[in-house]
Design a protein around this nucleic acid. Structure first.
Lengths: 347, 347
DNA sequence: AATTATTGTGCAATCGTTCCCGGCACAACC
DNA sequence: GGTTGTGCCGGGAACGATTGCACAATAATT
């Protein structure tokens, strides 16, 4: 192996100029040889390619970005990768992005609006070619995103979307998923079904609440606002979940079933019910959105609504890359809705 | 807000040249005015600053990276963020990096050597100023990393380290952690203690095996190679874990306790024991490294060795940034070892 | 033999920024 | 009055890669 010793200290990758100098050619010839242009003689090509191979030459992506005016990378904003649902989405995103030659830069909001804003503005200024966004629980003001969108930065929303920005959206069928979960609780004999959810302005909260209401309506059960509990930070702090459930259990008419709207809240709820030593499913049946793959190991048990997370990541990325690579402005946007599946666990 | 309409379609931020043209100055003057150099008159400065403010000018970080020959970003290579331990490490990394003005780019190996190599070479080709690496289960050949290191790319290893590269390392006290877990099993009355671990060349495997042996030795229990099971991909495929445990349970002298060496394997083992309907802890006591925060919900129960993951991420990042920003070559490297803690769960 | 293709290569501009160098005023000095 | 100084600013090179254009050398044609 040959080391680059132009400078003994700093990490200095080889450049076209290095190859050109070593071989007594011009940089343009070297560049063309590497890109396999027809106007370079086979001998020169071989010479250059062999040498490039030997020193393990890689084109400098930063110089390319500057020249091409794009970075071949996309930014992702989500609440946290420790959440199984998002981890699976990320895997889907990467599977598509890498195939199409894009880098993926992941940023976490931890459900804070300020963090989201800083992250996304940072990404935009670092010239990502597009954004995949799932809004934080705190976010109500999307004006900074509208700004970037109006100025032409492609973006696709997934999971937690907003209608204030006209672009592609990819979500699970939250209404149907919530309906099925609630219906399951009803069929298990529950009559006072509580609903634990994230902040009330998130799209997923609205839709899942809708599905819950539809199920109650179908079976002629009354809707009672007292049974709905919101967690402003989506259960990011266990205290939120703790208080919400204790309040529910202190109601005069305790709920006998609960539908939980998100991964983190579902897990958090199980923790609280275990602490409170409430018998599941005798005293309380629990169903909730959750993509964890260890639910079968848990007690108390959770009947889960599972989202096609990997696929959602794939589709969102495909949509985004198509936007980025489109030669003409796109005005026709799609809202894609994928079905969830219900995994029944009943001990 | 003023939008740049040089081109109606693409996202085109303002440049120095735009300001210079608008104000009838040269780009160098504008640049100097913005950087507040003393050789620009107060009036010109104010003129430039006001205009820049008005159009919301941001320097192009890509051009800066090319010029400064650094990107103010660090790369991370780890097996998968869906693993709680790594998710926590990432949070630690970000907490330090963002404070010091660095971006974090995360890549996942999913325990494959080829994936690791491609990812890291991609990162190194210029876009990152340094690397945080935890090796994949498959990796035995670190020559491509040695290469980058010799050429001056700063890197710090965490968790799964190698001694083939002379740089900072930050790990948990794996020997002690494994010793305590095994000792716990012995004190619970186990006499035939199996050990389920990742691929045999990983540093963590070697160290954790050592701790296991030391505990056996201290209590005069025989070491039996038949009780050691390796999973080449660290349990990335559940089948690996499945086969390993079934083999253990088919031994003439079945083990009555098992010490598991990693997060994913611990979870995988619980799944298998549940499937096999083996009574825990009556027939089998399980202890293992695991940073999951829902272990209290699981049955069968797992006594866990918990690593200070967040802190490891923080320390590794601090070390790396110090390397990157050091004006002189560093030859004095540190191996930092953090204590684990044992969480006993016994149902 | 002169002209025209064809082939292979180099020059220079470009992307956005920084910074060295030099130049033009005007003032202060011996 | 020349020399030196100083404040203010523009020109241009550099970072690394791509690419249109020019030009050389050789081959093919008239």
């Amino acid at each position: 192996m040959i080391y680059n010793i132009r400078n003994g200290i700093m990490f200095e990758p080889f450049t076209l100029k290095d190859i050109a100098k070593a071989l007594g050619l011009s940089t343009s010839t070297v560049s063309r040889a590497l890109r396999d242009t027809h106007e370079i003689s086979p001998e020169t090509k071989k010479l250059v390619l062999d040498y490039a191979q030997k020193i393990n030459y890689r084109p400098n992506p930063i110089a390319l970005s500057l020249k091409e005016r794009r970075s071949k990378s996309i930014g992702v904003s989500l609440s946290e990768v420790a959440n199984q649902y998002f981890a699976q989405v990320v895997n889907g995103i990467e599977s598509i992005a890498y195939d199409r030659g894009y880098h993926v830069i992941i940023t976490q909001t931890h459900e804070f609006y300020e963090r989201e804003k800083v992250n996304i503005q940072h990404l935009a200024s670092r010239s990502v070619d597009g954004l995949l966004v799932s809004l934080s629980a705190e976010t109500t003001d999307t004006s900074y995103l509208q700004n970037l969108h109006q100025r032409g930065l492609p973006m696709v929303f997934f999971d937690r979307v907003t209608d204030q920005i006209n672009t592609h959206q990819i979500i699970a069928n939250n209404v149907k998923g919530a309906f099925e979960a609630t219906e399951y609780l009803i069929k298990q004999g529950c009559r006072r079904i509580a609903h634990l959810t994230s902040s009330d302005h998130l799209s997923i909260s609205v839709e899942r609440l809708n599905g819950y209401k539809q199920a109650l309506a179908k079976y002629n059960l009354p809707f009672d606002e007292a049974y709905i509990k919101y967690c402003a930070h989506g259960g990011m702090f266990q205290e939120e979940t703790d208080i919400a459930i204790r309040e529910l259990m202190n109601l005069r008419e305790k709920p006998d079933g609960i539908f939980v709207a998100s991964d983190r809240l579902s897990i958090g709820a199980l923790v609280v019910f275990k602490e409170l030593k409430i018998k599941v499913p005798q005293e309380m049946v629990i169903a909730g959105f959750c993509n964890s793959d260890v639910l079968d190991l848990m007690c108390p048990t959770l009947t889960s609504v599972r989202q096609p997370a990997f696929e959602m990541g794939q589709i969102a990325t495909d949509m985004l890359l198509n936007l980025i690579e489109s030669k003409y402005p796109v005005h026709d946007f799609e809202k894609k809705i994928l079905d969830t599946s219900l995994s029944i666990r009943n001990s």
